[in-house]
Nucleic acid binder design. Structure first.
Length: 890
DNA sequence: GCGAAGTA
DNA sequence: TACTTCGC
């Protein structure tokens, strides 16, 4: 490659990286609470440049932040600039650490700005025959353009770059590079507080420079100007020249380092990984990782071998084609390679088995024919440390292979230690402890590029993964014990994974015909609504596009704008609701929205995921939510409609596995409020629950200070909303949105609520104090949620942290409770050899497939186990019902 | 509030 | 990616 120098304007890009994301609300931060958005944007740009590797020399210039020669010459220079936000300031030291680790030349020089350093090196490098590229978001830099120097300006954000050459400058501004300072001298630059000639903007300046070439040229022909314009130019002559001088980049800064000092070699991958780890930049670690493996494969850089500790041992790679009993250990780590994320009816690639004395990979084709291996897999007494053992167990169950003896699950252990750790792969967790494991995406690709590579590649990965699991086991178990969380992990999450796996594999029967009929019906109704809406709008447009809909409603029909989004008008349901009386089109729109959602997400969505066995097999994610709840994907069976009758009909398609059987649904009544009453020790609520009184009415009585028989339905509705607000941790703003009332009134409601239940106020104070001190909060059963935001200096962030601190113990404890119940119920069903099965969990509700003869026993057993799952100061109450479909079990 | 999913 | 909507 010819000599090529890239010059990066560190200050301008770092600021741009910050402000490009700072306005979007929540700033990124790492686990320690440090803001990281600017570092993220900057690192992304740096990694991209390094990846493309289109250069030989590289330099990043910074300002010193101190006075420069420009301030000395002109007192107003850069006056009126807002102070740098503390959220940005705190990120600065890390930029230098990142650049050091990436081994990129960088410095600043007292008395000069980054521009001047870049100007100086651009000129020198050009003279030495370099091709030069300048990366900046500062348009002033355009003056440095030449045949050998291009300026890449950031467009929106940091990812889009625009190359500027002399020809492009001519085309866009009809100016040469050397005329840029003249342009600034005339029109000024508000960002640097360069004044220019008042009343002269870009248009005038470009026109005059086109005519006369420079500021000097203009003044030579000053008599050709007329009237007011001439007066201005005469009056501000001095200012024009001074402004130009300020806008002119210095190209003769007395710098010590030579261009040759900027020659680039390569990153220090270990150091860089370490910093990215500290910043929680997993995607960059992934990139570095991939870069390393490419380097290693090409063998171009020997020093890169053994990047991280623990890698040395994985050098001997053993793919076996024969298994004997003596190869199979009593205690080891096991990885079961299932390349797809959905493991139902999925392809299994192979197994890796690792401990101190064992290390081999066996392809599935061979393993499944080995009686010794199958017996070993099934043997409960052979202990296997794994990552996501539910995936392995269910994946193998589809192939009629039993897997028992899971002694450890790295995914669950990691999640219990930190519920914000929700990766479903080994690499990040392994890397944080110094083990090098590839990312799944780098082995198998994703999307259209998904492919299973050669066996040795998979084998290496599977062995690395097993290796990490094996050596991390003791570490994480010790951490769990030290944190008092071992029981939660061992007695709750581990057995729960088994229960969830059984539920997933069992699946729930869904009647395709029922859905087909609904789909046809919907299609007809949606067609009619669509025609009606187009008719009422007076034009055809895409109703599903919020953008197009906004134009129709608020421009064509002139309806009042209630709410705006970042990019335009909001057309959300609550907005449309308020416009209901304003135009007949709204009614149809709301119905259209409702029906298209039902059809696409639920009717068609569910039809697409029915397996050959006529059932839907969801996957429960056990290490996903920050509160400890489980979530359900492909499909999500935890958000099947229930509130509106129209949607609720979907549930008619969910049937038992046999027409003699029943769907049984049992749900906790008000579990979160009961947990709140218990945790915050609220006598009024505890008493109400003990005596079975209506809790929302009870709340209304206290908040509105009326007698129980005076509570109107509206009062109860509002009290209920506040109760929910507490449970879901919403803000006064959220509550105001919910109830359609002013924020101030919502705030009042909340205050009144606290006065009514002073124990809640005490609980809040205590919990927030605890969170601030420890950085996390805990549930009744020691599930932790880390909340770095609680220490934020930013009000919105801190408020979010406080709400999370209050909410997590409540929601999380409720999640713990139903998990205990599920384990107990499954044990009882097994012990009594019942044929009925637990199928679904919807946060506070369990759904079963029940044999007719077991109806009474299941109802008794389930409600008992659920109510007795834990003992609190309030009773737990369970409601239940049977039906021939899920719809009817109400 | 969170999490999943569909559409543009 | 942004917006919308479903559940708890």
């Amino acid at each position: 490659m010819d000599k090529k120098l890239i010059l990066i304007d560190g200050n301008s890009l770092f600021f741009r990286a910050y402000f490009a994301t700072a306005y979007s609300g929540n700033l990124m931060h790492n686990k320690a609470g440090l803001h990281t958005n600017a570092l993220y944007g900057f690192s992304a740009m740096l990694m991209k440049i390094l990846d493309e590797h289109q250069f030989t020399h590289l330099f990043v210039a910074f300002d010193t932040g101190k006075k420069t020669f420009r301030h000395d010459q002109f007192e107003h220079y850069k006056a009126g600039r807002k102070a740098t936000p503390p959220e940005l300031l705190e990120q600065f030291p890390y930029v230098f650490r990142i650049l050091n680790a990436a081994r990129v030349a960088h410095f600043s020089l007292s008395g000069y700005e980054a521009d001047d350093l870049i100007g100086t090196y651009a000129k020198r490098a050009e003279e030495q025959g370099f091709e030069v590229q300048i990366l900046t978001s500062d348009r002033d830099m355009l003056q440095l353009i030449s045949d050998k120097v291009t300026v890449r300006l950031t467009k929106k954000g940091l990812s889009e770059l625009e190359d500027n050459t002399p020809a492009m400058l001519q085309e866009k501004y009809q100016l040469t590079a050397s005329q840029i300072p003249d342009l600034k001298g005339l029109m000024g630059d508000t960002s640097d507080n360069i004044i220019g000639i008042p009343g002269v903007g870009e248009k005038t300046a470009v026109k005059l420079l086109g005519q006369y070439g420079s500021i000097e040229g203009i003044y030579e022909h000053i008599d050709e100007l007329k009237g007011k314009q001439k007066e201005r130019f005469v009056e501000y002559e001095d200012l024009a020249f001074k402004s130009r001088k300020l806008a002119t980049i210095e190209t003769n800064v007395p710098v010590e380092a030579s261009v040759e000092d900027m020659k680039y070699d390569d990153v220090d991958a270990v150091a860089l990984t370490e910093i990215f780890q500290e910043l929680d930049f997993q995607s960059f670690i992934k990139k570095l990782n991939l870069r390393q493996s490419v380097l290693e494969q090409n063998g171009t850089d020997e020093s890169m071998g053994g990047l991280l500790e623990g890698l040395e041992e994985s050098n001997e790679l053993l793919v076996v084609d024969k298994i004997t009993a003596d190869m199979l250990p009593d205690n080891c780590a096991l990885t079961v390679e299932i390349p797809t994320s959905n493991y139902h009816q999925a392809h299994v690639e192979g197994f890796a088995v690792v401990n101190e004395t064992t290390r081999f990979y066996v392809p599935f084709m061979i393993a499944k024919k080995s009686e010794a291996f199958l017996a070993w897999l099934a043997d409960e007494s052979k202990q296997k440390a794994m990552f996501d053992y539910k995936k392995a167990t269910v994946g193998l169950e589809w192939h009629d292979i039993a897997l028992n003896g899971a002694s450890f699950d790295l995914m669950l252990a990691g999640y219990i230690l930190d519920s914000t750790y929700t990766q479903d792969e080994i690499a990040p967790l392994a890397a944080s402890k110094g083990y090098d494991v590839a990312f799944v995406e780098n082995i198998y690709g994703k999307g259209a590029k998904f492919a299973v590579p050669e066996t040795p590649v998979v084998a290496q990965y599977a062995i690395d993964a097993a290796h990490a699991v094996w050596y991390l086991k003791a570490d994480l178990e010790n951490e769990l014990k030290a944190n008092g969380q071992y029981e939660l992990y061992q007695d709750l999450e581990m057995p729960l994974a088994h229960v969830l796996g059984d539920m997933e594999f069992a699946g729930i029967h869904v009647n395709r015909k029922t859905l087909d009929n609904m789909s046809d019906d919907m299609e007809a109704r949606i067609g009619k609504l669509e025609a009606n809406i187009h008719e009422l709008a007076g034009t055809d447009f895409n109703i599903g596009s919020p953008k197009q809909l906004g134009v129709i409603l608020f421009e064509k029909l002139g309806l009042p704008v209630i709410k705006k989004t970042k990019t335009g008008y909001s057309t959300a349901a609550d907005v449309l609701e308020q416009l209901r009386t304003a135009h007949p089109i709204i009614e149809d729109l709301l119905m259209y929205r409702q029906l298209t959602k039902l059809k696409s997400t639920y009717i068609d969505g569910l039809r697409n995921v029915i397996f050959d066995d006529g059932k839907i097999h969801t996957i429960y994610k056990q290490a996903q939510t920050s509160t400890g709840r489980i979530s359900s994907i492909e499909p999500n069976l935890q958000n099947i409609p229930i509130r509106l009758e129209e949607g609720k009909l979907i549930r008619k398609a969910f049937e038992p596995s046999d027409k003699e059987r029943w769907i049984f649904a049992a749900d906790y009544s008000q579990i979160e409020l009961r947990v709140l009453a218990h945790i915050a020790k609220i006598p009024a609520l505890i008493d109400a629950f003990k005596h079975g009184r209506d809790i929302h009415t009870e709340t209304a009585v206290r908040v509105f200070e009326v007698e129980p028989d005076e509570v109107t339905s509206n009062m109860r509705r509002q009290a209920k909303a506040v109760n929910f607000g507490i449970i879901y941790g919403i803000s006064d703003f959220g509550l105001s949105q919910q109830l359609g009332i002013p924020v101030a009134q919502a705030k009042q409601f909340i205050e009144k609520y606290f006065q009514s239940f002073p124990e809640i106020k005490a609980y809040m104070k205590e919990t927030i104090g605890y969170a601030r001190e420890h950085g996390y909060v805990k549930t009744l059963f020691d599930r932790k949620r880390y909340i770095p935001e609680i220490r934020s200096k930013n009000y919105n962030e801190r408020s979010f942290g406080e709400r999370a601190a209050l909410n997590a113990p409540i929601q999380g404890s409720a999640a713990d409770i139903i998990k205990f119940a599920m384990i107990e119920i499954e044990r009882a069903i097994e012990a009594e050899e019942l044929q009925s099965k637990l199928l679904l969990q919807v946060h506070d509700e369990l759904i079963f497939d029940v044999v007719d003869s077991e109806k009474d026993r299941i109802a008794e057993l389930v409600s008992e186990k659920m109510e007795a799952a834990v003992t609190l100061d309030v009773p737990l109450k369970v409601d239940y019902a049977f039906g021939r479909t899920w719809y009817d079990a109400k």
